[in-house]
Design a protein around this nucleic acid. Structure first.
Lengths: 159, 159
DNA sequence: ACCATCCCTCACGCACACGGTAGAGTTTGA
DNA sequence: TCAAACTCTACCGTGTGCGTGAGGGATGGT
C-alpha cells in the first residue's frame, strides 16, 4: 500500500543531482562534509539518495555563493537559520513551553534581520554601481556618435 | 614656484594608505604585483607614494571584491577598461586617426555593457532575495505577537 | 552469475587571495 | 649623527573551495 506521501517521496542518486543542479558530485559531498547539506538518506549499499528539498537547498546555496559572493561559512549560518525556521513553522501547537518557543522565534527574527541588512547593503551599493555604469555608457555612446559624425563628414570632404 | 596642480598632488606612504583604506600593506603590494594597481611613484629610497586617485582605485577594487564577489581577475579586466576609458576621455581631439578612436570607444562600450549585464543580473536576484527575506520576517513577527499574546493570557489565567 | 555503470571513501593536489616574518635599507626628528 | 619608526624585497605558510585519481564495493539489466 502506497500512501500519497510515499508517492511524492522521489529520491535521486548523486549523479542525477549533479547533472540537474550543475554541481559536481565532489562538491555535493564536500557541502555535506561541511554541514551545508544535512546527510541525505542512503540505499542499503551506501549510495546517497537526495530528496527534492535537498535539491532546492543545493540551488539556494549556489545562488548565495555565486550571485552574492557569500563564503560557505556565511551560507552555513544562513541555511541553519532557515532550517530552524522551517522546524518552528512545522511545529503545530504542542503548546506548553511557550517561552521557549518565543525565544526560538526571536532567534530566527534576529537571524533574518541580520541577513536582510547584508542584502540591503549589497543592493544599495549595486544600484549605485548600476547608475554609474549606465551614465558612463550613455556618455560613451554620445561620444561614439560624435566620432561617427566626424568620420562621415571627413569622407564627404574627400569626395 | 608651486602651481595649483602641484599643491593638489598630495602623496601618501603605504602605511597611511593601509590605515585609510583598511587594506593591509601586504595586500597593496599584492594588488600592484597582480596589475590591479599601476605602480605608484617612489621616493628616492624606494618607498611607495600613492596619490588620491590610487586610493580611490583601491576602494573601488575592495567594493567590487567584497560587495559584489568578483574575483581579482574579473576586477583586473574592469579596472583596465576603466583606465582605458579615462585615457580616451582625457584625449582632447588630436583628431586624425578617427577610426582608431572610434574602435577604442566601441571597446569601452562593450566592456561597460558586459559589466552592466552582470550587475543587472545580480541586482535582480538580490531584490528577489530581499523580498523573500522581508516576507519571512513579517511572518515571523506575526508569529511572535501571537506567542506573546498567548503568554499574556496564560499569565492572566494564573492570577 | 555477469558485467557495465554507477557510487563509495580516503587522500593528495591546486588556484586564489592573501598573512607573516626575516633581513636589510630609508626617513625623519631631536 | 643617531635612534625610532617606517618601508623594501623575497619567500614560505595558510584557509577556502573544490579537482583528481586510486582502489574498491553496489546496482540493475540480461
Amino acid at each position: 500500500m502506497t500512501s500519497a506521501a510515499d508517492e511524492k517521496a522521489q529520491r535521486f542518486q548523486i549523479g542525477e543531482v549533479a547533472e540537474r543542479t550543475g554541481v559536481t558530485q565532489r562538491t555535493l559531498r564536500f557541502y555535506e562534509e561541511k554541514g551545508l547539506l544535512n546527510p541525505p538518506e542512503r540505499m542499503e549499499g551506501g549510495f546517497r539518495l537526495y530528496s527534492e528539498e535537498d535539491i532546492q537547498r543545493i540551488e539556494y546555496i549556489r545562488q548565495l555563493q555565486q550571485l552574492l559572493g557569500f563564503t560557505l561559512a556565511d551560507i552555513k549560518e544562513m541555511v541553519e537559520a532557515e532550517e530552524l525556521r522551517q522546524q518552528i513553522i512545522a511545529t503545530f501547537r504542542p503548546d506548553r513551553e511557550l517561552p521557549a518557543r518565543l525565544e526560538r522565534t526571536q532567534r530566527i527574527i534576529d537571524a533574518l534581520t541580520r541577513q536582510l541588512e547584508v542584502v540591503d547593503h549589497k543592493v544599495e551599493h549595486l544600484q549605485k554601481m548600476q547608475e554609474d555604469l549606465r551614465s558612463k555608457l550613455t556618455r560613451m555612446e554620445t561620444r561614439k556618435k560624435e566620432l561617427q559624425g566626424a568620420l562621415a563628414r571627413e569622407a564627404k570632404d574627400k569626395k
